[in-house]
Structure formats: structure tokens, C-alpha cells
């Protein structure tokens, strides 16, 4: 079970616009074993999607540029692959589900053909065989195969997302990257879609990176969690570490802004302030300006990740003062 599938080291991705350099992802390290689900959590603009696009090597260039680091998939560095080699990996070994199912499907192709396209790209099968497999994939995500020949505008949002999932899973990838797969869907459909994803993940024995800002989803789906803030990982560990032994002030803040359904009514305690402009990141700890526990030193030097217990890493210099959450 503990066979390593993905290993990211020191990954930095910046966007270069006319007069600014936007530091979207800074020295990120992640690793993922086969069959595991990793949750990438962070606010809008924290760099979650950029990391995902980096793994797919689909960071729009220009303006985006992968500055350095390694992304190893089964020991091979994806950043050294030629584009033609990446084409064979995308969709076959690593697939991605995008945030907005409304716009993720090509409006003028039938949904069946869009699934079959992926199958035909990655296996040498005839048109008819690909269509048959595509129809099976459709059924796998709970859409009757009779609807193979229909177009995206004839489906509801939840169904479109299932089709997007079907495309991503059609070639049985080893790694599925789901970029906020349920953000655009309403709550009842969210649960359905997550169920389907979890089911298929176990059935196909995939690994998954789940990008979300919904800690509820993380609790339900993830083995490991990495909390991202301003392009850096501020806390990472197993789900138990993050949920039961929350250490970083930002993570604590995230939980504070989560309404609880079961418990007594209380005021939400949102994290004060705004995420820093990624083109002008503060020196030292990026979270310091918003941190309730900051000390003068926080704003001066870079803070390294510290291992507080085996596998649980936190980027904070004042851990001694920071009490966990109640």
C-alpha cells in the first residue's frame, strides 16, 4: 500500500504579467502513495489549481512558468518530459476533473464521443470498440447508455460533472486530480458526485488529489491533507493530524470559519484580513500579517516546515504559543 506514486519537490510556479511576477506556487513539496487521497486545501488564489495544472504540465505559458523543482510520477520526472510524451501521460496515467462542469465539455460534440476520444487517444481500439467502452464508462457514472449521442446542453450540471468524471476515468488513470469537483454543484448533487468518485477510486485502485476549500469534503474523502497559503504549504499531515491536532494558526482559522451543524450556535471566527497579493508577498511568514499569534520575528525571516510529530509538518515558529483549537 505504501508504494510511492507521486512525489513533488521544491515546485515553484510563477506567472509573469506585464510588470508583475505573481508567485503562485513557492517551493511546494508533496507526496502521494498508491491508493491514497490527498486533500489540497486553501483559499481562492492559494495556488491549488496551479499545482494541479503543473502536474498536468498544462500551466498556461505564457504567462505561467514552472521555475523549478521536480514532479515525479512513478520515479520519472514529468518536468523533463517532452510535450509528446506528456500527451501520452495526460488522460491515461494522470487525469484531471475541472471545477466548472458547465463549461468543461465541448458543446458541439456528443458526450459519448468526448469520452470515446480519450479512449481512442490512449489505446489502439477501433471506433466501435471505443464507443462501446465509452458507453460502459457512462453507465459506470450512472448515466444510461442511451444518452451517448446527446450533447452537453441536454444535461443538468450534476450530470455534466459525471460526464467529466467519466472522461477522466475512461482510461483508468493511476492518479486523478479533482479540482474543486463539487464547488459548482448544489449540495445534494455534491454528495452524489463525491460518492461516485470515492466508489470508482476504490474500484479502480486510483490515487487522488482532491482540491477543495471545503473541510467537510476533506474529512469525508482524504487520507492526507496539505493546507496551502499564498503558494506555500503551511501544514500537512494525515487527516487525523489536521483535524484532531490542528497546529498552524491559519488552519485553526479555517476551522473557526466553519459553521458547525451539530454543535451549539456560536459566532463564526473568520480569519481577519485578506490573502496577500501574490505579486508582493510579505517577507518572512506569509501569514504573519493576519496571524493572531505573530511576534516581531515572524515578519523577518523565512519559516521552515517543522515536523511536530511523525508525518505532521507545520510552518510556524511560534508553535509553543499557539494553542490548538478547542
Amino acid at each position: 500500500m505504501s508504494e510511492k506514486l507521486l512525489n513533488i519537490e521544491d515546485l515553484s510556479i510563477h506567472y509573469f504579467t506585464e510588470n508583475r511576477e505573481v508567485c503562485a506556487v513557492n517551493h511546494v513539496a508533496l507526496s502521494l502513495d498508491k491508493g491514497e487521497t490527498l486533500g489540497l486545501v486553501g483559499e481562492t488564489g492559494a495556488g491549488k489549481t496551479t499545482i494541479a495544472l503543473g502536474i498536468m504540465r498544462l500551466v498556461p505559458n505564457p504567462p505561467g512558468k514552472i521555475l523549478g523543482g521536480r514532479i515525479e510520477l512513478e520515479g520519472e520526472n514529468l518536468l523533463e518530459k517532452k510535450n509528446s510524451e506528456m500527451q501520452k501521460i495526460r488522460g491515461a496515467k494522470v487525469s484531471m476533473i475541472f471545477q466548472d462542469p458547465m463549461t468543461a465539455l465541448n458543446p458541439i460534440d456528443t458526450v459519448g464521443d468526448q469520452i470515446a476520444e480519450c479512449i481512442r487517444l490512449h489505446s489502439h481500439v477501433s471506433r466501435a470498440e471505443a464507443a462501446l467502452k465509452a458507453a460502459e464508462t457512462l453507465e459506470m457514472v450512472g448515466i444510461p447508455r442511451e444518452r451517448y449521442g446527446e450533447y452537453p446542453h441536454q444535461f443538468s450540471g450534476g450530470m455534466k460533472q459525471r460526464i467529466v468524471i467519466a472522461i477522466a476515468l475512461s482510461c483508468k488513470p493511476e492518479l486523478l486530480i479533482a479540482d474543486e469537483p463539487t464547488t459548482a454543484l448544489d449540495v445534494t448533487i455534491q454528495a452524489q458526485v463525491l460518492d461516485i468518485m470515492n466508489d470508482l477510486k476504490n474500484k479502480l485502485n486510483m490515487s487522488m488529489i482532491l482540491i477543495t476549500h471545503d473541510l467537510g469534503v476533506v474529512a469525508e474523502m482524504c487520507d492526507k491533507v496539505a493546507i496551502l497559503y499564498a503558494g506555500e504549504i503551511v501544514e500537512s499531515g494525515t487527516a487525523e493530524h489536521i483535524f484532531d491536532d490542528t497546529r498552524h494558526p491559519y488552519t485553526i482559522g479555517l476551522f473557526g470559519s466553519l459553521p458547525s451543524v451539530a454543535g451549539q450556535k456560536r459566532r463564526l471566527t473568520p480569519v481577519a484580513g485578506l490573502t496577500p497579493d501574490p505579486a508582493r508577498l510579505p517577507a518572512g511568514c506569509k501569514f504573519a500579517p493576519r496571524c493572531p499569534h505573530r511576534t516581531p520575528e515572524c515578519g523577518q525571516e523565512e519559516v521552515a516546515l517543522r515536523e511536530v510529530s511523525p508525518g505532521h509538518w507545520v510552518r510556524c515558529r511560534n508553535l509553543e504559543h499557539v494553542k490548538g483549537r478547542e
Binding site: L58, Q87, G91, F98, L105, I167
Partner: peptide, 22 residues
């Protein structure tokens, strides 16, 4: 700029097919 172009790229479609087909 549309999302479905990125979807096509994420499927591993070659550039030619992305441009001329999608």
C-alpha cells in the same frame, strides 16, 4: 480560452486535434 479546450488538452489530445477539432 474556454475550459473545454483545457479539458481536451487534459485528455492528452495532440495540439493539432485541439486546434482544428475542438
Amino acid at each position: 480560452r474556454q475550459d473545454y479546450i483545457r479539458t481536451a488538452e487534459a485528455k492528452g489530445a495532440p495540439r493539432k486535434s485541439v486546434i482544428y477539432h475542438h
